[in-house]
Design a protein around this nucleic acid. Sequence first.
DNA 1: ACAAAAGTGTTTACTATACACCCATGG
DNA 2: CCATGGGTGTATAGTAAACACTTTTGT
Lengths: 230, 230
Amino acid sequence: MTPSEIPLLLDRPAITVDLVIFSVRDHDLNVLLVRRLEAPFRGRWALPGGFGQPNESLDDAARRQLQEETGVHDVYLEQLYTFGAPRRDPRGRVISVAYFALAAATVNAQANGGDVEVAWHSLTRLPELAFDHGEIVRYALQRLRYKLEYTSVGFELLPNEFTLTELQTAYEIVLGEKLDKRNFRRRILDAGILAETSRYRESDGQGRPARLYRYKENAVTEVKARRLFP
Amino acid sequence: MTPSEIPLLLDRPAITVDLVIFSVRDHDLNVLLVRRLEAPFRGRWALPGGFGQPNESLDDAARRQLQEETGVHDVYLEQLYTFGAPRRDPRGRVISVAYFALAAATVNAQANGGDVEVAWHSLTRLPELAFDHGEIVRYALQRLRYKLEYTSVGFELLPNEFTLTELQTAYEIVLGEKLDKRNFRRRILDAGILAETSRYRESDGQGRPARLYRYKENAVTEVKARRLFP
DNA sequence: ACAAAAGTGTTTACTATACACCCATGG
DNA sequence: CCATGGGTGTATAGTAAACACTTTTGT
């Protein structure tokens, strides 16, 4: 920051926090959306989000918006990217700090009292979204797939206890490809990030009950990438 | 974005763009800094940056600030992270969209006329910076090292034509470790991202002249990571 | 006893690493 | 002819991928 110091209030863009909340439901990757009640884009689905408060960090603002607007709390959250194209909001200059969040299928979302509609939408049949929110979702999906491959954020898509088949299915749904069961289990167990519980899940219909695991706290979350250079 | 619509001007934070420009010089990784002329932190070194203009994207604002403030242009630039802790600027709420840039040692920086000091600083002996800029630099360094391992951004630290030893040295300086010459050359040549030129660089003192290479435009920039899961 | 899902090892191909000597040039 | 940096190949270890049958449970 240099000689040109803090600008006149009139020149300031507005700044919002928007959230892309992913969850695996009904055998599909879903995003949580809210329906807009006012112009512009009235009636269209949009990402939850809003303005920060004066004494709140961006992360805190994201968490608060999530809770207030959708009832979702205690989920994995990370900053995604800041979008600031000049005409992305027809009302004027609005810069949006986008976050992405991962919620287990057991997490419930509900409108906070008012008449705002909140709903999960499958990514395979996403409606046209308000503003540039479609672009933000695409970017978030790319980041999710990418991180799934070399970090352990994937566990954030599951409840505390889960079976290895449930974990594998979540991965397959997000990555959009089938994985080999034996290799998957070997890798994930060898990584030493799971703790076996003594409990089992009865399969709905029939079949052998599956052992439940939980994700170890303090587990390493990043796996070394295959380096381009030695 | 929901019922709470665009807020009063008074509630709006100011928003700046700050730049972390890395360059390998004098056998060290350097960052380009400017000395502050005004309070707060008058006399301290800070990241170049400033406010965006109404009809300018964030990327454009970053590029313009870089050119205007330091004379640096046509370098690799990418958005890093947005910093928005409530008290990071003592004058009031300022949210900063940080960018990181890579410049070859042949790129010159110079103050734009005025009496602003602009200088490269080695990361091994960085002065205490203004605001939270020290934290921003640390975060940028982490990102640079990370990307160096699994993308080809490293080439942005070198001029158009370079020798393999120069390339290897740049990697060694950024990563802070020695690399094996034969393995390095094999990997980088096998990756098919370099084109051999017919020219050679005379080594300063003595020794056999080294072949010059250039980075292929359109080369793949990402290398597949070693996946945690099969 | 059968249907349904859980669980388990081995072989083969590929990729990464470690390592030492000859080559071209200028003084 | 020597000092300096450039350039090159191979053997070994480790990691990834492909692949099919047995076990446990409920009906």
